Simulated scan of single mutants.
Amino acid sequence: MRTRFKHAALFSVKLLLSIAVLVYIARGLDLRQLRDHLVSVDPVLFVVALALIFFQTFLLNGRWELIMRALGVSLDWLAGWRILMISLWFNQVLPSSVGGDAVRMWLLRQRDVQWPEAVKGVAADRFTALIGLIVLMVAGLPFLLSRVSNQAAILAIGGLTVAGVAGTVVLLTLDRLPKRFIALPAIASFVRFGTLVRFLLLQSDHRALLFGSALLIHLVTAAACYALARGIGAQLSVLDAGILIPPVVLLTAVPISISGWGVREGAMVACLGLAGVPSEEALSISLLLGAISVIIGLAGGAIWLASRERGSYAADKAAKAAEDAPSYGLGNEASSHP
């Protein structure tokens, strides 16, 4: 009962935050112009953006399959894609603590994958995606400096990039610290996880493909945003989309709202504004991208309704799996890498 109350309270707080941010952004805009952008979007370019995000699910599944294979888990491609699509549905309807990642772990367990491998596979997949974002942001910094004159924005995005690089380097090199320090229970889990990710990116047989997919997936999101921008007549260049969309994706990943709603819109308005895109157009792009995410999520929901696991699903068990992730996948029971 206490766990359910906590999840309900968390969901309510995130929902209120999403609504509050959306209202705050919209109150200073021309809502009639915003509506016109949304209803007059070029249907062909909207379908192109939808097709790109749908294609992205195959890339996501391919990256995840490579990680699971490196962990010694054989995951059938279609089964993995099905699990991924179901997780996207849960991302739309549940707070992060019982969202898609927890469901992915639970569904893997139904296929006789042990908890340590399930948790490590999902966590490593998430962190690999984060590294891909940071690399793109580092690559985009020189172009940002040459195209944007807003010093505060440059400092903000540059600071976010530097923090991401520093955090990644620290995590991947934790095992180089004195043994008495990394033996502490609070640190040991992160040491093992950092060693695992380093193995995946530097030593696994498919490291080049894994790293390349981590970059390509985010570039697909940028391409979809570019298509939506052209669909509403916004003047956004391909280069600006490639530079400014990764920070939006990174900020959207912060788990403080429902499925990124509100945070994504605020980040999109702020970042695309640096390229001269009016706020109404930037907000329209974000809302259309959110609508595409909902459509993809609904497809995952249909797969979930037809799945045999639905009858045995227990949200409490999935939530507990997510809460116990450090002890399952990154703690003393788990090896650092295969």
Rank of each mutant, 00 (worst) to 15 (best):
residue 132 G to T: 07
residue 175 D to H: 11
residue 23 V to G: 02
residue 113 V to S: 00
residue 281 E to T: 02
residue 279 S to I: 09
residue 136 L to C: 03
residue 286 S to F: 12
residue 109 R to T: 08
residue 12 S to D: 08
residue 140 G to M: 10
residue 134 I to R: 03
residue 230 R to A: 08
residue 228 L to W: 04
residue 89 W to A: 10
residue 50 L to Y: 08
residue 7 H to Q: 12
residue 279 S to N: 14
residue 20 A to W: 07
residue 305 L to W: 14
residue 195 T to A: 14
residue 113 V to W: 05
residue 334 A to F: 07
residue 194 G to W: 05
residue 193 F to H: 06
residue 242 G to R: 04
residue 52 L to V: 00
residue 321 A to L: 14
residue 174 L to Q: 00
residue 253 A to V: 00
residue 295 I to L: 04
residue 227 A to C: 09
residue 272 L to V: 14
residue 214 A to N: 13
residue 313 Y to K: 09
residue 222 A to H: 08
residue 312 S to K: 13
residue 23 V to M: 11
residue 255 P to E: 05
residue 117 E to P: 15
residue 48 V to P: 04
residue 255 P to N: 09
residue 138 V to H: 03
residue 263 V to I: 04
residue 148 V to M: 13
residue 132 G to Y: 05
residue 280 E to A: 11
residue 54 F to A: 12
residue 188 A to L: 15
residue 216 L to M: 12
residue 246 P to V: 04
residue 284 S to N: 08
residue 157 I to L: 03
residue 151 Q to M: 15
residue 76 D to R: 12
residue 303 I to S: 12
residue 319 A to M: 11
residue 75 L to G: 07
residue 79 A to D: 10
residue 314 A to C: 11
residue 104 R to V: 04
residue 36 D to F: 03
residue 37 H to D: 11
residue 150 N to D: 12
residue 72 G to T: 01
residue 150 N to F: 13
residue 318 A to G: 09
residue 218 H to Q: 14
residue 203 Q to A: 11
residue 289 L to V: 01
residue 243 I to L: 04
residue 277 V to Y: 13
residue 21 V to M: 02
residue 60 L to E: 02
residue 313 Y to D: 09
residue 238 V to N: 05
residue 323 E to S: 15
residue 87 S to L: 07
residue 105 M to T: 10
residue 13 V to Y: 06
residue 225 C to T: 08
residue 38 L to K: 00
residue 178 P to C: 14
residue 325 A to W: 01
residue 241 A to P: 12
residue 250 L to A: 15
residue 84 L to C: 11
residue 210 L to V: 02
residue 65 E to S: 03
residue 251 L to I: 06
residue 150 N to Q: 07
residue 212 G to E: 00
residue 210 L to I: 12
residue 73 V to R: 06
residue 94 L to N: 10
residue 335 S to V: 14
residue 34 L to G: 07
residue 38 L to H: 01
residue 200 L to H: 02
residue 157 I to V: 01
residue 330 L to P: 10
residue 181 F to E: 14
residue 235 Q to N: 13
residue 256 I to W: 01
residue 160 L to W: 01
residue 326 P to K: 05
residue 209 L to V: 11
residue 307 S to F: 10
residue 6 K to M: 13
residue 245 I to S: 01
residue 327 S to L: 10
residue 263 V to P: 00
residue 86 I to F: 09
residue 4 R to K: 13
residue 174 L to A: 13
residue 198 R to Q: 09
residue 310 R to S: 15
residue 199 F to V: 05
residue 116 P to W: 03
residue 60 L to K: 00
residue 70 A to W: 00
residue 188 A to R: 15
residue 167 G to R: 05
residue 329 G to V: 06
residue 281 E to D: 12
residue 14 K to F: 03
residue 288 L to E: 00
residue 118 A to F: 11
residue 281 E to Y: 06
residue 297 G to M: 02
residue 44 V to Y: 12
residue 214 A to V: 00
residue 253 A to M: 01
residue 9 A to W: 10
residue 146 S to E: 11
residue 144 L to H: 02
residue 324 D to S: 12
residue 178 P to A: 12
residue 296 I to V: 02
residue 189 S to M: 14
residue 148 V to D: 13
residue 120 K to Y: 06
residue 11 F to T: 04
residue 315 A to G: 03
residue 77 W to H: 15
residue 230 R to S: 08
residue 74 S to T: 11
residue 262 G to F: 00
